[in-house]
Simulated scan of single mutants.
Amino acid sequence: MTLRLVIFDVDGTLVDSQADILASMEAAFAEIGRPAPARTEVLGVVGLSLPGAIARLAGDESDDRLARMVEAYKTSYARLRHQNGAASSPLYDGIRPLLEALHARDDLLLGIATGKSRRGLEALLDTLDLRRFFVTAQCADDHPSKPHPSMLLTCLAETGIDAGRAVMIGDTSFDIDMARAARIRSVGVTWGYHPAPHLSGADRVVEDTAALGRVLDDLLELAT
């Protein structure tokens, strides 16, 4: 039996965390006395590491002010997660059944590649009872920001699976560019934070989890 690896992004792909992201970015900008950027601008940087995302949104602020913003964001996000529990980052419709079905297959392993911090990822996996699905989970604390391929290359190394037998699933151009850099096939999902035209570089683009399941079957058949 030939094992294959399916790697998921988290925010905007598995869970909808935009309410807490937007509120926490507002807290980050309030820390330095500035209004937060528009919703589309904030969601446009989801997937990057937090320091990189804030630096891109805040422009030419000093390193000290950027560091204050990062800490304000982290404090706000942790408070909201503690306050709201699973409601902070609900799973998208159809995601849990999809994970259950993929996890039940003997020929598949599942992984994560996310711009979240390790603390945030671990809390999410525990709160939503997702930890059991994934054999490898890479995050921003341990790697360069997407679209650098480090997270995906580590997923491959930890599982012993070649790039040709892996698929990356994400909702942003950063995910698709990361997959291309790692020579991994990719699927873009349109229910997340980047508009569909930004996903044009993916091997496939899908609009719902039912379609995602079918496309994965097709791509995994092609995996060698």
Rank of each mutant, 00 (worst) to 15 (best):
64 D>P: 15
125 L>G: 07
145 S>N: 07
172 T>D: 01
6 V>P: 00
189 V>E: 00
75 T>D: 11
142 D>F: 11
145 S>E: 06
27 A>E: 02
68 R>I: 09
124 L>T: 02
51 P>K: 05
38 A>W: 15
135 V>L: 13
137 A>S: 10
61 E>D: 13
137 A>E: 03
50 L>N: 03
118 R>V: 15
182 A>M: 05
91 L>T: 10
141 D>S: 13
117 S>T: 14
129 D>A: 12
75 T>S: 15
192 G>A: 06
202 A>H: 04
81 R>W: 01
187 V>R: 15
63 D>G: 12
15 V>K: 01
1 M>T: 09
75 T>C: 14
180 R>Q: 11
89 S>R: 11
41 E>A: 13
8 F>E: 12
49 S>G: 14
129 D>N: 11
36 A>E: 08
85 G>R: 07
144 P>G: 12
157 A>T: 06
72 A>Q: 00
2 T>L: 12
53 A>F: 03
145 S>C: 14
172 T>S: 13
71 E>G: 11
193 Y>N: 02
176 I>C: 03
30 A>D: 06
169 I>Q: 00
6 V>N: 00
179 A>G: 05
54 I>Y: 09
61 E>F: 14
28 A>N: 04
86 A>F: 08
29 F>W: 08
110 L>I: 04
22 L>M: 08
139 C>Y: 04
140 A>D: 00
121 L>S: 07
139 C>K: 06
18 Q>V: 11
138 Q>L: 01
110 L>D: 00
97 P>M: 03
1 M>K: 15
50 L>A: 03
100 E>R: 09
156 L>F: 10
84 N>C: 12
28 A>C: 14
128 L>A: 05
118 R>L: 13
78 A>Y: 12
61 E>A: 14
188 G>A: 07
75 T>K: 12
147 P>A: 05
138 Q>C: 01
2 T>R: 15
69 M>Y: 05
196 A>E: 11
126 D>A: 10
179 A>W: 00
50 L>F: 04
10 V>A: 06
192 G>H: 02
